[in-house]
């Protein structure tokens, strides 16, 4: 009897967490995408981003460093007995920059959602993931199921390397979001196969 409870607790080992980050501009469908595939309703918590606001707020009297409280949305998918995949949507306030080492630390890769009518909104995410060398895929969200620009035009406008996969996604559709995450994972896997320079 006295050995029972410890055996029970030992039997349910906590899963190993892995994560994918979902980036993009405000209102581009990040939370919708998380909600479409997460096995829990997307949860929101508060987080802080610290950023250097010098460029944007040059004329104001703000100190160089600013800490902003933002909402962080996330969900999860149980992959198997041992692995649990977390999806974190980056906060939408891109004007504050991307000093989110915390969020991205240890991530497998990132999905950057794009609204083709507001392409510029995704630049901070693309720049950031490029800079830190995190594998990412760009997915144009099909609002109303339609693409308002040709994918080639979008690639040209974003000026991303031709290696970076550019796909479409319907952020409301579970299977479509799954396929976009699979594209991120394949990209991450292919990266691990590359010889180290």
């Amino acid at each position: 009897m006295d050995s029972k409870h410890s055996a029970d607790r030992g039997a349910r080992r906590p899963p190993i967490p892995v994560k994918i980050v979902i980036g993009g501009g405000f209102g581009v469908g990040k939370t919708t995408a998380v909600g479409a595939i997460s096995e829990i309703s997307p949860l929101t918590t508060e987080a802080s981003i610290t950023s250097v606001a010098a460029e944007i707020d040059r004329t104001s009297e703000m100190p160089e460093k600013t800490t902003t409280t933002v909402a962080l949305d996330f969900g999860c998918i149980t992959v198997d007995d041992e692995l649990k995949l977390y999806l974190f949507g980056t906060p939408g306030q891109d004007r504050f920059g991307f000093m989110w080492q915390d969020l991205v630390q240890g991530a497998l890769g990132a999905l950057v959602l794009v609204d083709s009518r507001r392409l510029g909104d995704c630049y901070p995410a693309v720049d950031y993931f490029e800079r830190i060398g995190l594998p990412f895929v760009i997915a144009v969200n099909l609002f109303d199921g339609r693409l308002s620009h040709d994918l080639d035009d979008v690639r040209w406008a974003l000026a991303v390397h031709e290696d970076v996969p550019l796909i479409t996604v319907d952020a409301r559709a579970r299977m479509s979001v799954r396929d976009a995450l699979l594209a991120v994972l394949r990209r991450a896997r292919d990266r691990t196969m590359l010889p180290r320079i």
Binding site: V79, L83, L85, G106, L185, R189
Partner: peptide
Amino acid sequence: GTDPGTIERIIRGL
């Protein structure tokens, strides 16, 4: 995050 075997498992899971 850099282990191909783990990434492959997640791919199969999804």
